[in-house]
Amino acid sequence: MALLEVQQLRAGYGPIEVLKGISLQVDKGEIVAIIGANGAGKTTTLMTLSGIVPVRGGSILFDGQDITRLPAYQIVSRGLAQSPEGRKIFPRLTVLENLEMGAFTRNDPQGVQADIEKAYHYFPILKQRAKQAGGTLSGGEQQMLAIARALMSRPKLLLLDEPSLGLAPMIVLKIFEVIRELNRDGVAVLLVEQNARMALKLAHRGYVLETGSITMSDRAETMLNDPRVKAAYLGE
C-alpha cells in the first residue's frame, strides 16, 4: 500500500523550474532510492515533500491525506521527517537538545525519553556526546545525530538526503547498516544519494532523476544491472 504518492509534482526557485512534473511512490516498509547527478533536483524533491520549497503543481498524498499545501511545520507531525543534506545540526545546542528538537511536535515526555534511549541504542557515540554542542561533533557523528534527530518525531517515512556525503567509507557502512535496521523496525525510507551503488544495494526500488524528470524506475537489483545505469551512475 502506498504510504507516499507523488503525482506530477512541479517546483522551483524564481524563474527556474527544477522539478518538471515528477511522479513517485513509496510503500509502507520500503526503502526507495533516488539517484541522479548534481543539480538533477534530488534535494529539491525532498525539500518540496517537507514543505520547505513551495509546490507549483501536482499533488502529494501521504498516508492517505493530501499534504500538498501544508506548511513545513505541520508535515512533521503527520509522520514525515527529514535528515537534510549537510546535516543542518543546531551547532550551539547540545546533542541532547538537538534530539529534543526533533521531538518538538510531540507531547509525550515519557515516549520522547524512551526514544532518546532508542537513538542512543542505534548510535551509542551520541550518548557519550550528549552534553556536547552539536557543532563540535565530527562529520560522521553529525550525520548520525541528523538521522537520530529526524527519528525523534517517530516518522512513518524518513527522508534522507545524502547521508554518505563527505564521510569515510567505514562510517558510511555503519550509517547504512543503521538505516537497514531502522527499516526492519518499520520505518519507510526515501533516500537521495550520489553514491548510487550503495544506495541501490540498500534500497528495494529506485528512481533515476535527470534534470527534473524521472527517467527510469525499477527494482533496485534490476537497476544495478542495467547497462545505462551502470554507464551513467556506477562508473562501469
Binding site: 514543505g51 512533521v76 521527517a81 534527530r149
Partner: peptide, 18 residues
C-alpha cells in the same frame, strides 16, 4: 529552545516541525 534552534538554523527548525 525553539528560539535558539530557529536562530541557529531556521530551515532545520522548520524540518523539526517548528
Amino acid at each position: 529552545k525553539a528560539m535558539r534552534a530557529v536562530a541557529q538554523n531556521p530551515m532545520a527548525a522548520q524540518l523539526m516541525g517548528i
